[in-house]
Design a protein around this nucleic acid. Structure first.
Length: 649
DNA sequence: TTAGGGTTAG
């Protein structure tokens, strides 16, 4: 290791010593000896060489011996050298090292302010970045075209509209309004703060629009759900590059416009624009949300064919796509083959196993992650506790729940408490679940109470169910799903009047009931079905198949669970109301439009009801088809009359 | 001699 020798001059000692400490600490591992220590100190050639070496540094460890050498032999306050050092800090998000350098710089110029603010902004310390900028103004240093966009970016990220507006005034005062970079960041600031009119005004006043500015404007709209405005703007862009295409595809996915996003991807290819890895991640996210396995596989083959780098983000997106499309074996095999794995990749795999009811596998991955020294996050625990819940693994679940704070120092959040309530509820330990909620350190929300309500209904503990229901109503925080559950609890006990009252309350309070919707991918297209949907072009064949199945179910000794229908209507009407649930229509379409023996995959936005669950089990037996249904909470793999969830979901 | 913009997973 380079020996650190402190200089003899007392006046320079204070500054140099603090640099030396930081440099020495950072240099501790691994030791790298600069090969130029014997060169002539302070010469022009030496300085140029130093700057060149610093520009190539990728870590503080590499830079600190050079820094130590500069302090010992050269001029430690050389602004060009300091600038390069701060740039390295920026690349490594090292605020501490950068702050020491900046604090000790006697009169930082605008370049050094820029470089230091860049370190702060790239590390997410936006407010510190903004404060530093205003300090610079206070010190009578004029801002330039570089520092303004940077600090505007900080204002946008911190949603600090007030500071942003102040800087906008300075932009006008200093005559920087025509700068493209400044304008783009002003738009971004206003867009992020929801001030579309101001963003649009800046955009419209641009002397020449370019693709970058248009992309920002489009993203502003899409971030706030203004899809048609975004598309209008997108159509006006004459030369769209892959970032612009990706931004609009991603925005459509985020706004739930999946088919539209896929349509635009096709259009992008027709236009001859090659997607990058960000485009791929957005597409995989769309496929995962849709449960579109074939399309997802196609995107995967595209990645392989065009050698798109499978970094840890693309890797996680692929694992996520396969597991959310119900092909957990492919997800696992891909996970094993990945070259780059980080906490996110592990999380995707754990959450995937949990969703697919593979509890033991999820726990094994969690243990492997620990063994490999990857630090878990809050999401890791949501996944692994969920897996414990799905597998009825109470003791392991409680051990992991306890270890979150004691072993990992991760705060337990409401979703983790929810998993524990679900875990106890699932195996029928309802009173314990109730006590757990009561004595917990968090305020339970409607999801937690809803989970207990659902468990009460499944285990036929109606008294507890009613007690929980009353708590939910008192809170006044029940969502539509909770109201439906509550209404179902009453209906199950034959209390139709109360069930009707709950539904009336739901309407009175204007709680929007999310309509049940199921989708199925056939021939690379997503077909959606609502309750009793008759919009599909092949509706006649679908309903004919439904009738045929209903007749076959009669001979299977099937008793419809009409108790889930809370309306006081005739029995045959209840039977009909159940048989036209969206998932059954989607399955019927799958049966008539796919080859015999192939797996049918359906995605539903809500939980599958009891009756559909029983019926789908029977359909899998009658038709000898594997049927995979992803509902709001998890996967159900139906095969030969049995479901992987063990009839608890 | 010092530098800069838009799109990513759970």
């Amino acid at each position: 290791m380079t020996e650190v020798v402190f200089p003899q001059t007392p006046a320079s000692f204070r500054i140099i010593s603090s640099f030396m400490i930081v440099a020495a600490v950072a240099a501790a591992s691994p030791p790298i000896s600069p090969p130029y220590l014997n060169s002539n100190p302070g010469s022009f050639r030496d300085r140029k060489q130093l700057l060149f070496k610093l520009q190539k540094c990728k870590s503080i460890q590499h830079a600190s011996p050079i820094h130590a050498h500069i302090i010992k032999n050269g001029n430690p306050n050389d602004p060009f050298i300091l600038f390069e050092l701060l740039r390295i800090c920026s690349r490594c998000c090292s605020i501490e090292y950068a702050s020491t350098i900046f604090r000790q710089t006697p009169d930082p110029n605008v370049f050094l302010y820029t470089a230091f603010i860049e370190v702060l902004v790239s590390s997410g310390a936006y407010s510190d970045g903004i404060r530093t900028y205003f300090q610079m103004i206070k010190d009578f240093i004029l801002p330039d075209h570089y520092i303004i966009p940077l600090v505007l970016k900080a204002c946008g990220s911190a949603l600090d509209l007030k500071s942003g507006e102040q800087i906008h005034c300075q932009v006008m005062k200093f005559g920087m309004s025509s700068d493209r970079f400044v304008r783009v960041k002003l738009m971004e600031l206003y867009g992020k703060c929801g001030e579309f009119n101001d963003a649009k005004k800046v955009f419209d006043e641009m002397p020449q629009r370019d693709v970058v500015a248009s992309t920002v404007m489009i993203s502003c709209y899409l971030d706030h759900g203004l899809v048609s405005k975004a598309i209008d703007e997108f159509r006006l862009v004459s030369t769209k590059d892959n970032v612009c295409w990706t931004a609009v595809i991603d925005g459509l996915v985020r706004n739930g416009e999946m088919n539209y996003a896929l349509e635009l991807f096709r259009e992008m290819q027709m236009a001859g624009v090659k997607p990058n890895e960000v485009t791929i991640v957005c597409l995989l996210s769309a496929c995962a949300q849709l449960g579109a396995l074939k399309l997802g596989k196609w995107v995967h083959s595209y990645v392989e064919k065009y050698n798109i780098e499978v970094n840890h983000i693309v890797g996680s997106a692929l694992v996520n796509m396969y597991s959310r499309c119900g092909d957990i074996d492919e997800a696992a095999s891909l996970f094993e083959d990945l070259k780059a794995r980080d906490v996110t990749t592990y999380n995707s795999m754990i959450v995937g196993y949990a969703l697919n009811g593979k509890s033991i596998e999820a726990i094994k991955i969690f243990q492997r992650m620990k063994h490999e020294g990857v630090k878990p996050t809050s999401i890791t625990f949501s996944g692994v506790l969920n897996a414990c819940s799905h597998g009825g693994l109470v003791d392991i679940g409680f051990d992991i729940f306890e270890s979150m704070e004691t072993e990992y120092g991760i705060e337990r959040r409401i979703e983790h408490y929810g998993c524990m309530v679900d875990l106890l509820g699932r195996i029928g330990r309802l009173q314990e679940a109730y006590d757990f909620i009561q004595k917990g350190n968090i305020a339970p929300d409607n999801i937690i109470w809803g989970s207990l309500l659902s468990a009460s209904r499944i285990h036929k503990k109606f008294e507890l169910g009613e007690r929980v229901a009353k708590i939910l109503l008192e809170y006044g925080a029940a969502d539509s799903g909770t109201y439906i559950l509550l209404s179902n609890v009453y209906a199950s006990r034959g209390k139709f009047k109360e069930a009707a009252q709950v539904r009336a309350k739901l309407r009175e309070e204007g709680v929007q009931k999310e309509p049940g919707c199921s989708s199925i991918e056939v021939n690379n297209e997503i077909h959606e079905f609502l309750l009793g949907d008759i919009r599909h072009p092949e509706r006649e064949a679908i309903y004919s198949k439904l009738k045929e199945l209903n007749d076959m179910l009669e001979s299977e000794d099937y008793a419809p669970a009409t108790d889930v229908i809370s309306q006081d209507i005739e029995e045959h009407e209840k039977r009909w109301a159940l048989s036209i649930h969206s998932e059954r229509l989607a399955i019927c379409y799958g049966l008539i439009s796919t080859k015999p023996c192939t797996t049918i995959r359906v995605v539903k936005n809500l939980r599958v009801c009891n009756d559909c669950h029983s019926v789908i089990k029977l359909i899998s037996k009658i038709t000898q088809r594997k049927i995979v249904v992803r509902d709001r909470n998890r996967f159900h793999h139906f095969e030969n009359g049995v479901c992987s969830c063990g009839d608890y979901w």
